[in-house]
Amino acid sequence: MTRLQAVFWDVDGTLADTELNGHRPAFNRAFQDCGLSWHWDEQTYCELLSIPGGKQRVLSYAKRQEMVVDPALLERIRQSKQQHYLNFVSSGAVSLRPGVKRLLMELARADVQQWIVTSSGESSVKSLLQSFQADLQGIFRGMVTSDAVNRHKPFPDPYTLALHRSGADPEAVVVCEDSMPGLQSALAAGLRCLLTPSPWDRELEHCRHQAHAVVDHLGEADQPTVILAGPPCAQRRITLEYLQLLLSVPLR
């Protein structure tokens, strides 16, 4: 059987609950700083999350408002939002999803490569990583962020680049994702995908069957995983053994 060589992790909604408690309020503070009357409530933000990347969301929302955002204003929003996001992360407002730390540590002990592959900017990702506990520092071999590719998820480019940089065999990689664009990106790159769906991504209801496994979360001893699709999980937690099992599931 092929040995698991690498796990590619999405960030927002997969590693941590960053969207509603981190990025959304940070955007709203940035809009105030830049003299904009915009306010993204949870419903509006959940709708915008179908668009990968903060810059693209701002431009899409501006178009709805029949407003043109010039590059200088866009950069001011980006810088302000990043600072507010860092403040929210540092305050502990953003937490890892259940089972994430446990699985990160298990994979590290087994010397499985772990990479971040995200549509977020590098500075946002680094801010989140710096908030992790000391035993998680340096756990990722590298990252592919929105700054590294021209085409973001759902295009395969982020995962194709991660494969190139990691040197991993596509047959020996599992992707952890939470959204429709992420699932599409992983599948387009020819990779197996474990999906932990975010509740805001309603499109997933119609096509999450395309994932190689779907779970509510990765699971803890007191929070067992519910398998929504894919192979059964005897331990009721997603483990290295389960990810290894996914390598035997045919590629979609």
Rank of each mutant, 00 (worst) to 15 (best):
Q235W: 00
R102Q: 14
S90D: 15
R29E: 15
W40H: 13
F31C: 13
V112M: 06
G54A: 07
G142D: 12
D70R: 04
K126M: 07
G121Q: 10
S91C: 14
L15Y: 06
E19V: 08
V7N: 00
T160N: 06
E203Y: 07
D70P: 04
L163I: 08
R208D: 12
M1E: 05
N150K: 13
C46E: 13
E66Y: 00
V173P: 03
D111P: 00
F140H: 07
T225K: 02
T118H: 02
N28H: 13
Q223L: 12
G53E: 05
Q43T: 15
A234S: 13
L204F: 08
A172C: 15
E42S: 15
L163Q: 03
N21F: 11
V68I: 10
C176A: 13
S146W: 01
W115I: 03
M105Y: 00
M180F: 05
P158K: 03
C193E: 01
L59S: 10
V112K: 01
S146R: 10
V11Y: 02
H164L: 08
E220Y: 00
N28G: 12
R192D: 11
L129H: 02
N28W: 14
G167A: 07
P52R: 01
P98E: 11
P98N: 11
E47Q: 15
T14E: 02
G53M: 04
K63D: 09
K81Q: 10
A110G: 00
Q235C: 05
S124V: 00
V249T: 14
V7T: 00
P224Q: 04
A229G: 06
D157M: 05
